[in-house]
Design a protein around this nucleic acid. Structure first.
Length: 589
RNA sequence: CGGGAUGUAGCGCAACUUGGUAGCGCACCUGUUUUGGGUACAGGGGGUUGCAGGUUCAAAUCCUGUCAUCCCGACCA
């Protein structure tokens, strides 16, 4: 039976909801697909559910093809497994916690690595049982500080999460690739435009990780890509250390008074006025800015680190967090400075009076790292660690050393890709999938071991693979709409064909009804607008709801003709009633 | 957590400055009308104005507190 608009549980809105900012959010609410139940919590109306179910079906088909078996865990879980891996604490306020009548702690699962691992431990004990890949499509709960943009970041959302269990690293690589391939097929079938980027693997203790991002200005992730095919999340990009330069002609380092030059801009001006160089003005790129960071360890221990970066760059907070993970990174406070009176704010540099000053083995004992762009043999204008004094021609490798690199400077459009594949462009994206080689972190924490062929216990290695199913609904809507409404790809549209009875004569309704029956026999899902309302309302709603094909049965019917709309291209043509469905079949992609 | 904004009917908004017990459009119900781009007219139902306290003869409106939501940032397998 077709879905009849005369009885469908649906009310479309003429105006955008006032609290919606993002197109997918506005349209999904206006077109009656979802309804807000609370902050970041959504109810699904029939149309929304149809789309979500079709996405899930595609995911299930491709998971099966990839050899993954579906299971289902509870959303309500006891805290013990999460204590074992430390995440009961680590997740902090992001977990919804609750207590039962005996005052025992429970949580609404934000993710399921622990219980998947424990279930496998429960049942399997031999290498012969592996490899294994299992997944579920489940609700996740995260008490996000700021839910936003409708379905894009909710506090309750559906995720497909899959986990692989292997005996060897080579096996993990195979399992990882199988999931990655499945993701590519899924997103292609959904008609999505996406990029695969290198992701930061540090936080989860794993070795390799990639994200699937849909480019969109409203995206929350920033990524870079080059024309030559390099792509990475900005948090994950790592630059090569710059090649050593010839410093044989570099003048010796000179310390000079530099009154009132606590910032890079004032220092550059001062240099050009008082110490001009041949062959061009000094610029910010000739200065070495030494940024004082406070690192906070997971145990809460606070220590300082200083990073030297070219003066024309800023520290990227997210990249710094990723680099120094698991430590948190904060700006050094006045209090931090007061504990280190030898640091002269605005005039910090790697050396003092000609000898090394920063670094673990130096006088200050403060670790000192350098941006990878700081090449051996390059020379810099930088602080002299005395009030209102800087040093010129200070040369890395000749005059000072470091404790290593810290690749935490902001990435700027036009920076060369680390693999030499061209200049980078910056873009924003929405994360729709993440594949991750977890390695043995969870297996170790939860003691998941199996006997190998020699009868020895070995720790299993794992991968985890996630797709945000409800987020996909929003992302598809975001990528595929116009000012009139949604435009679903055929694979996920509630119905492929939307038939409008435009007129009041009985014959129009009969023809539309007959056509709907015929379309269903051909295997189409059909939306039939059999309401007794004026055609204008039906046209507007058809465009808002977004089925890919619209057939209008109306005034052309006397001549045996109907109108066929291609919602995506906007093309409209008049065709014979009896050839309308064949026309759609021949035009389908 | 920091900054900004907003809470009045299912949705979008007005009334608040200058207190007098709530109104418009959409949606909904009834009737007539209209039927290829949200028809027109008439009638109607629906709101303890986020919550609590205070001032006052009288509070959507003034005062205090509180809660919530949205946006930007911080945070976020």
């Amino acid at each position: 039976m077709p879905y009849r608009l005369s009885t469908l549980f649906l009310r479309t809105l003429r105006e955008d909801p006032a609290d919606a900012e993002v197109d997918s959010h506005k349209l999904l609410v206006r077109a009656g697909y979802i309804r807000r139940a609370g902050p970041g919590i959504w109810s699904w109306l029939p149309l929304g559910l149809m789309v979500k179910n079709k996405i899930e079906k595609i995911v299930r088909e491709e998971m099966a093809a990839a050899g993954s078996q579906e299971v289902h865990f509870p959303g309500l879980l006891p805290k013990e497994p999460y204590e074992a891996t430390g995440r009961w604490e680590e997740y902090g306020d992001n977990i919804f916690r609750l207590k039962d009548r005996k005052d025992a702690d429970y949580l609404l699962a934000p993710t399921h690595e622990e219980v998947f691992t424990l279930l496998v431990k429960d049942l399997y004990t031999s290498y012969k049982d592996l490899p294994l890949s299992i997944y579920q499509i489940q609700l996740k709960y995260r008490d996000e500080a700021r839910p936003r943009a409708g379905l894009l970041r909710g506090r309750e959302f559906i995720m497909k999460d899959a986990y692989s269990f292997d005996i060897s690293d080579e096996g993990l690589e195979v399992s990882y690739q199988a999931q990655r391939d499945a993701y590519e097929r899924i997103f292609k079938r959904l008609g999505l435009d996406y990029v695969i980027v290198k992701a930061d693997a540090g936080a989860m203790g794993g070795s390799k990780s990639e994200e699937f991002l849909c480019p969109a200005p409203i995206g929350e992730d920033t990524f870079v890509r080059s024309s030559g095919g390099f792509a990475a999340n900005v948090e994950a990009i790592r630059f090569e250390v710059a090649q050593e330069q010839d410093a044989s002609k570099t003048p010796a380092a000179e310390i000079h008074e530099s009154p009132k030059t606590p910032t890079i801009a004032t220092l550059v001006d001062f240099s050009n006025q008082n110490h001009p160089r041949k062959g061009g003005q000094w610029t910010a790129a000739d200065t070495l800015k030494n940024v004082v960071l406070a690192l906070v360890s997971p145990e809460g221990k606070r220590s300082l680190a200083i990073v030297g970066i070219p003066g024309d760059r800023e520290v990227d907070q997210k990249r710094a967090e990723a680099w120094f993970s698991p430590n948190d990174v904060e700006q050094a406070t006045e209090e931090d400075f007061s504990k280190h009176p030898q640091l002269v704010k605005g005039y910090i540099g790697p050396t003092k009076s000609g000898s090394q000053f920063l670094g673990e083995k130096s006088a200050s004992k403060i670790p000192y790292f350098l941006d990878p762009r700081v090449a051996k043999g390059s020379s810099w204008i930088t602080g002299a660690n005395e009030d209102e004094k800087h040093v010129w021609h200070l040369t890395y490798g000749r005059d000072f050393s470091s404790d290593g690199i810290a690749d935490i400077a902001e990435v700027v459009a036009g920076d060369p890709a680390p693999d030499g594949s061209g200049p980078l462009e910056l873009a924003r994206g929405i994360e729709i999938g993440h594949v991750f080689q977890l390695g043995r972190k969870y297996a170790e924490a939860l003691d998941l071991k199996v006997l190998d062929e020699n009868g020895k216990l070995v720790t299993v290695t794992m991968g985890s693979y996630g797709i945000g199913v409800t987020r996909l609904v929003a992302v598809i809507a975001e990528q595929s709409h116009d000012e009139k409404g949604l435009i679903w790809p055929e694979a996920v549209a509630p119905a492929q064909i939307h038939i409008i009875a435009a007129g009041k004569e009985e014959s129009v309704f009969e023809a539309a009804e007959a056509l709907a029956g015929e379309a269903e026999e051909m295997g189409f899902d059909v939306m039939l607008d059999d309401r007794k309302v004026s055609p204008g309302i039906k046209f507007a709603d058809a465009e808002l709801l977004g089925m890919p094909w619209v057939i209008v049965c109306g005034r052309g019917l006397e001549g045996g003709e109907v109108e066929l709309w291609d919602r995506a291209s906007g093309e409209r043509l008049t065709v014979k009633l009896e050839s309308a469905l064949a026309e759609i079949t021949s035009r389908r992609k």
